[in-house]
Design a protein around this nucleic acid. Structure first.
Lengths: 231, 231
DNA sequence: CGCCCTATTGAGATTCATCAACTGCGGTGG
DNA sequence: CCACCGCAGTTGATGAATCTCAATAGGGCG
């Protein structure tokens, strides 16, 4: 059952449905109106332009949020990890496409319910606002990566970004639920360039790559230097 | 007084203070607690990391919102045009630096007032939320530009982006309150590459460049083709 | 055991950045 | 009033980073 395509997360307690809302009480009121769903590798959860009927919370697995152009060029805006809420913008339509990186369990609730509950519950409102702000801020950092960092700097920054998210691994062990092509599409690079940057970092002993879904950070300080452009 | 560095906007009625809030009644309650300020070319309105005490609305001129890295690399996240609200994220600190492109007039109000008023006034709340969503959506489009478009495509997209904003000019006449370096820093390019792309577009008769702050769009359809990667 | 998919490595082409020279306009001062 | 100065923008020549195309490797699943 645990495929290479979808490694299990270490903290498997998270997968228990009744624990999902534990940390952020502000969203607790949504629990009652939410239903659980399963998706498998590369399945679409919703498409850019679809009527935005539901909001989602990721329980287990990983999701990519991306834009796909007519000619096939793809830009991933965000990787969703367990505990993250997504698809909650208050527009009529989803502004991004959501696809499962592997086997995925999500909770979802009707957007109308959120709006109704938000009217009554200031803490929920504040939490929604805060989530939006965090996303905006993350997008701004992402802009700097794409606009002003070299390939190697982007890859180093990416590793640190994943490392700083809960559930991303044990200690220095990074768990990457996405493939190399996904990383490339997040960083605005080709898959080959991502590989070469990783190989470089490995040669310099900043990381170890036991297998394609695990990366071990061997020298955090040096990695941060690389990410900042200090050669 | 009206220098080449700061061209006056055609619709100068907008500069009348009492008209600023006309279009969006939802923000009207903020008018009472706002004060007017002036900044001149390249002056800093607030810095990334500063305590976010105020929110702003641009009355006249242009503002760039950017990130500046220790080594001097700069990424502009957004150009603020008259009527836009900025610096309103609900974090403790500004996530971006705001600088005047030329002579600028802004309204500003204490953030605490916004939060208080937002508690009482659902329409204001909704408008704030909507503004956040629009910004997030714009940032996502920006990500695609930086990650997956060529230099020429980015420049064409940029011109169309500016053209689709109110007050950006008369008819086909685009007004660019920013300099070439600002455009380059928005597009993740060098100033030379921006120039060459503009020259290309001019040679192909898609645009005309009467002076550095004005660009005339001669063939919108063709420009859109270029922006989408159709050669 | 072998196939398929993903990742890695290599060689050459291309785009964009870098460095440098020059232009044009506006403002200033002789 | 004209000449000079300075800044922003443009153009040219070269080089470096990244992409493209192609071949190889490795791991999991049938």
């Amino acid at each position: 059952m645990s495929l290479h395509a979808q490694p299990a997360y270490p903290n498997s307690a998270r997968s228990a449905l009744e624990l999902v809302f534990h940390e952020d009480d502000a969203l607790l009121p949504l629990k009652a109106v939410s239903t659980s769903l399963h998706f498998s590798r590369n399945q679409t959860i919703f498409n850019e332009g679809d009527a935005a009927r539901y909001s989602y919370k990721l329980v287990e697995g990983g999701v990519r949020l991306c834009k796909i152009r007519p000619d096939g060029r793809r830009q991933i805006a965000e990787f969703v990890l367990p505990g993250d809420v997504f698809g909650f913008a208050l527009d009529e339509e989803y502004s991004l496409t959501a696809e499962a990186l592997g086997d995925v369990i999500v909770l979802r609730w009707p957007r109308g319910q959120v709006e109704r509950l938000a009217e009554e519950l200031p803490p929920l409102r504040k939490e929604l606002m805060a989530m939006l702000c965090r996303e905006l801020s993350a997008a701004q950092e992402h802009l700097v990566m794409l606009g002003r960092q070299t390939a190697k700097e982007r890859v180093a920054s990416f590793l640190l970004l994943i490392a700083n998210r809960r559930d991303a691994g044990d200690g220095d062990q990074l768990l990457l639920p996405m493939g190399r092509q996904d990383i490339a599409d997040y960083l605005g690079l080709t898959i080959e360039t991502v590989c070469r940057a990783l190989t470089d970092l490995k040669r310099e002993r900043l990381i170890e790559i036991p297998d394609r879904h695990h990366i071990e950070l061997r020298n955090l300080a040096a990695l941060e230097d690389v990410a900042e452009g200090g050669e």
